[in-house]
Simulated scan of single mutants.
Amino acid sequence: MIQSSANSYKQNQAETAPPESLTLMLYNGAITFIKRTKQAIESKDLSLAHHYNTRVQDIVDELIITLDRKYPISEQLLALYDYMKRRLIEANISKDVAILEEVEGFFVEFRDTWKQAMVLARSQKQ
């Protein structure tokens, strides 16, 4: 019952969040699932590691799909997301924690930069 309520809350939060918050949620979700992937690899639960890794790949796909191509930076982000997706696939095949840490570093950088951009955008609206 509690899990169902938590899932409903998360779904409602995602459905009502502004686009900039959704991007932040995707970055945070990717970081969480990478951490879970690494834990599953360390505990030798390869099926669970595969599951979490593919969740991160799905997040990268969503980030690619939602890129606004009218901005020049989107092509650079697309190239980085594509690289990250390829690295996630490599990590999934080889169960390589080092590759996951590399991709996690990208997500942390994206998340932190995105948070700063959100703060800056809000301050300029006032």
Rank of each mutant, 00 (worst) to 15 (best):
A40E: 03
N92D: 01
Y71V: 09
S123Y: 01
I99F: 09
V97G: 00
Q124F: 06
D61A: 10
Y52W: 05
I64N: 10
A117V: 07
Q13C: 03
S5W: 00
L80Q: 15
Y27F: 14
A6Q: 15
V103G: 07
T16A: 10
N12Q: 15
K38N: 02
K125A: 05
Q39N: 08
I59T: 05
I34C: 08
Q11A: 12
D68G: 10
A91P: 07
L22G: 01
T113E: 12
Q13K: 13
R36C: 02
Y71C: 06
F107T: 03
Q39E: 11
H50Y: 09
Y71P: 03
L67D: 07
A121P: 08
T66W: 11
G105T: 15
N28S: 11
A30K: 04
L100K: 01
R36E: 11
E20G: 07
S47I: 12
V56C: 06
P19H: 04
T113W: 07
L22A: 00
R69G: 09
I2S: 00
S74M: 03
L46V: 03
Q57A: 01
K44S: 13
P18I: 13
A79V: 03
T66K: 15
L78A: 02
A121W: 10
F110L: 15
M1Y: 02
L63Q: 04
M25A: 06
A121Q: 15
V97D: 03
T54E: 10
I89Q: 09
L77H: 01
G29D: 14
E104V: 06
